[in-house]
């Protein structure tokens, strides 16, 4: 694929996303609400929020290495939206949540996210910066002892150092939900965290924890793209298989596709 074709596809893709966003918002305004997909672990967030409120213990929300201004800006914005809704739920607590980050450029975003919900209080010290990677993990474990958070929502860019944080939280009886855009961090999150989000669920999470229409529209558009990509990959796979096996006939391919589709739908409905 030459560069021009690639650019044309890119423009078309972005344009289609814009159209999808406005279409979904149009239907939403007309009152056609689609049930949100359920993500595992969202129920625990409510539990941790109540724990934070009742026991006057802060929630700890971690951005990790996600930095505004770099190629992960969009991830940082999605996390800020997710955190906004969590903080909104915990606003009855006397203790403001702590947002930690290891990129200096994420600090203003973190403070902004806090300021939107907490009109008073020391935002400067509740948004905290630590040096990246292992130093960040070490500083967060120290903070776990000092501030005794009710739970940790570790949604951002983490590597294997996530293990130190989750392990420490585990030992202190503090809950953890983790997701990372890096593969090593995601593996650790899956193995060790109490609750885990995987991949693009990070972007859909805001729509799942709140009634905010815009966040739900984003989650919906993401679902549509996801379904299209899965279908595309599935069809490409079938065509590839059919090419390699000349004895395959269309009836067989169609029936296998139908079974796969039903299977996919079942999985989708279950989740």
């Amino acid at each position: 694929m030459d560069q021009t074709t690639l650019q044309v596809y890119t423009v078309l893709f972005v344009f289609a996303t814009v159209v999808l966003v406005y279409t979904a918002r149009y239907f939403q305004r007309r009152g056609k609400r689609r049930p949100q997909r359920r993500l595992a672990g969202m129920g625990r967030i409510a539990e941790w929020t109540s724990r934070s409120i009742e026991a006057n213990r802060p929630l700890h929300l971690a951005l990790g290495r996600t930095a505004v201004g770099e190629d992960k800006t969009a991830i940082a914005l999605a996390e800020a939206e997710f955190f906004h809704h969590i903080i909104e739920g915990a606003q009855a607590s006397d203790v403001a949540p702590i947002i930690s980050a290891s990129a200096g450029s994420s600090l203003p975003l973190a403070q902004d996210t806090l300021r939107r919900v907490w009109s008073s209080g020391d935002h400067l010290s509740r948004a905290q910066w630590y040096p990246p990677d292992l130093a960040y993990a070490a500083a967060v474990t120290a903070m776990m002892k000092e501030d005794d958070p009710a739970a940790h929502i570790l949604a951002g860019s983490f590597g294997a150092e996530l293990a130190l944080m989750i392990d420490s939280a585990d030992r202190r009886g503090q809950g953890s939900l983790a997701v990372s855009d890096r593969l090593d961090g995601q593996a650790v999150a899956y193995a060790m965290a109490d609750e885990v989000l995987i991949g693009e669920e990070l972007f859909a999470a805001a729509g799942c924890v709140s009634e905010d229409g815009r966040a739900q529209v984003d989650a919906l558009v993401l679902d549509v793209w996801r379904a299209l990509v899965i279908m595309g990959v599935g069809i490409a796979l079938l065509l590839e298989v059919a090419k390699r096996m000349p004895w395959l006939n269309w009836a067989l391919v169609a029936s296998v596709s139908a079974i796969l589709l039903v299977f996919a739908l079942l999985i989708y409905r279950r989740h």
Binding site: I53, E54, N56, E88, S93, R116, V117, W118, S120
Partner: peptide, 19 residues
């Protein structure tokens, strides 16, 4: 002994809390 639950928080959001 449940002060925090019913104490009025400092809120800026348009969405009022139970408190």
């Amino acid at each position: 002994s449940l002060p925090s639950l019913f104490r009025r928080g400092e809120h800026a959001s348009s969405q009022p809390s139970a408190a």
